[in-house]
Design a protein around this nucleic acid. Sequence first.
DNA 1: TACTAAATAT
DNA 2: AATATTTAGT
Length: 427
Amino acid sequence: MLAVEALRGSNGEDRDGSSDNFSVDGDFAGGTLLEDINFSDLFMGIDDGDMLPGLELDPTETFADFSVGWEEDLGSPAVGEATDGMLGGVTQDTVVSEGEKDLRHGEEATSETTAEDAAAMTSEARSSTPDRGRKSSAAAAAATATATTGSQGKRKAKVDWTPDLHRRFVQAVEQLGIDKAVPSRILELMGIDCLTRHNVASHLQKYRSHRKHLLAREAEAASWSRRRQVHPTGRGVKRVGVNPWLASTIGFLPPPPPPPVQPFRPLHVWGHPTPEAPVVHMWPGYLSARSRSPTPPWAPPQPPLPPPPDPSYWHHLYQTGSGEGWVPHAMAKGAPCFPQPSPMVRFAAPPVPGVGPHPMYRAVPPTMGKHPSSQLQLDASPSKESIDAAIGDVLGKPWLPLPLGLKPPSLEGVLVELQRQGVSKVP
DNA sequence: TACTAAATAT
DNA sequence: AATATTTAGT
């Protein structure tokens, strides 16, 4: 029996109100913003050649699994070109696969063979388990595990930590700082609604594990290399493959770099800014006032935080036509995760455009109409570039917000930041 | 509750 | 074997 593959995300148990939507690279869907995207700015210093073939999803698998969602949304040639240009054809990989459609099973489908069962069956049930109604090993295990709780045990579908997804993850981790990178905040920064905190926590665990291991190896190699400088042996240098968890510069040589001056310098992870091209500018306000991002020593000084925007005002910016919040109804019903259309937020042009921070920059309510050239539109699920443009325009200098795949809460961060920079809202 | 580490599952 | 989820401890 063929398992039903769907694009929708996990239940998102711990993510209130945003359980089933997905807004990764939402701007790619419409393609309207693509022309403005400067892909070279996307990931500074990143050579996508670093990508590990081994880590990439099997395209066949990927598109087989996600065909439903992507056929519609990435069908346009323009989009295809753009995405190919950017991520070497793995743009779509930020999709989370879900081997089950447990949404509708939540409580009601306690009875028969669920999709999950079917999926699990494919691997096991056919071998033994005579009684058909019997749960698969996974289901059984889950059931056993949750027997005490009495809840319906369902093993969640695995999340494909694709290169792009992983990159977002690492980006978030780096932005937070390795010591302050906790699942909830990482998730927040990643802005990917299909992920749950547990997903991130799991990945974080693995990330830390790998990192620790690799750091240990690096240290060992360093000492070894030092020793070797004193007592050259002439032996060959051990080579290791590129590791996605660590730098693309993995070799044991050259000798160890000078001791870091910062308490934490993001490990150079594949697909991320190189030490030579560090993050130029963090986005402090992005992280909300309650705990702004730790300012790295190499980051510019941060001005004081502004008072938070009026939530009631900004809230409607996130509303969709359905009037049920920004999450399209279809998604709430468990539709596959896919880039979603969203309302626009416009930023009126400053009296003196392009010249430094302008206190009179204004945000105006969403509008779907075409924007005059004098105005800059910011999608509610804005691309990094469009936000860059918005803030950069305000500040009159390049700006690099880290998170990709922004979603409304992130947009709020954007707005907070803009307001902090002197943007005022239109009554 | 959230985070983390360990145990399991695929 | 690698990597994800689940469980359990703090």
